[in-house]
Design a protein around this nucleic acid. Structure first.
Lengths: 111, 111
DNA sequence: TATATAGTTAGGTAATTGCTTAAGTATGGA
DNA sequence: TCCATACTTAAGCAATTACCTAACTATATA
C-alpha cells in the first residue's frame, strides 16, 4: 500500500554502494566504520547513504557508547519482494488466460 | 552478476510513474498513449520514463506503423527478484547459525 | 490531397543526488 | 588529563532527474 515507501526502497537499492551495504548487513550487524571499510569514499558520504537506507526502512541503527550498530529490517525487504511477486502473478495469469483462449480459438480471433 | 543492470532496474522502479507503467504492462502489452493515459504529465515525459524502462531491460518495444507497442521483459524482473532471494537466504543462514550457537552456549560467549 | 493521429526531437529549468572538505562532539583508554 | 576513536554537522559543487513547451516527422483516414 505505502507506495511512497516503495519509492524510497527502490531508490535506496539503486545505488551500488547502498546495495553493497545491504549485502553486508544481510550477513549480520555492523558498525558504521565496518560498513565504510570496503569503500574508497569519505565517512560522511557513507553516513549519507546510511541515512537513505534508514529512511527507506531497510536498515535500523542504534548508538551505544560511541559506536552506532546497524542491522537489516527484513520486513522492508519483503515489502519490495511482494511487489515483484504480484507482477509475476499478474503476468502468469495473463498468459494462462491467453493459453485458454488459444485452446478454444487456435486460429486467432473468433470472427 | 551485471551489477550495473541492477542499478538501472532499481532506479527505474524507484519512480511511481514508471512503476505504474510496469504494473500496467504486467497485464499485457500497451501503446505509448495507452501507457500515458492515466497520467497528468506530457507525452514527452512519458516517453522519457519509457526510455529508462527500456534502458534497464524491464520493457521492450517495437513500432509498427505509427504506434509503438510496449511489453514486459520478464527476465529483467526476475533478475531483481533473485537479488532479494539471495539477501533473504543469507539472513536466514545467519539466524540458523545463531540458533545452533545458542543451543550449544545458552549463556552467551563460550568464555 | 488535406487533416488528424501517434510519436519524436530539442532545448530549458528547478530540484535532487552523490560526493567533497573542514570543523565539530562525544566517548573510551593510557 | 590527554589523545585517539567513532562518528556528526555544515557547506558547497558538478552531474543527473523529472518535468516542461515548442516544433517536427511519419502514418493513417476522409
Amino acid at each position: 500500500m505505502p507506495t511512497a515507501n516503495l519509492d524510497l526502497t527502490f531508490q535506496a537499492l539503486a545505488d551500488p554502494t547502498r546495495r553493497g551495504m545491504v549485502e553486508r548487513l544481510s550477513l549480520g550487524p555492523a558498525s558504521v566504520s565496518e560498513l565504510a571499510a570496503p569503500y574508497a569514499m569519505s565517512l560522511p558520504a557513507i553516513v549519507q547513504h546510511l541515512a537513505l537506507l534508514e529512511a527507506s526502512g531497510l536498515v535500523r541503527s542504534e548508538k551505544v557508547g560511541r559506536v552506532r550498530t546497524c542491522r537489516m529490517e527484513p520486513a522492508a525487504l519483503s515489502l519490495a519482494e511482494q511487489w515483484f511477486n504480484q507482477r509475476r502473478a499478474e503476468a502468469e495469469q495473463r498468459l494462462d488466460r491467453l493459453g485458454e483462449y488459444l485452446k478454444r480459438f487456435p486460429d486467432g480471433d473468433p470472427t
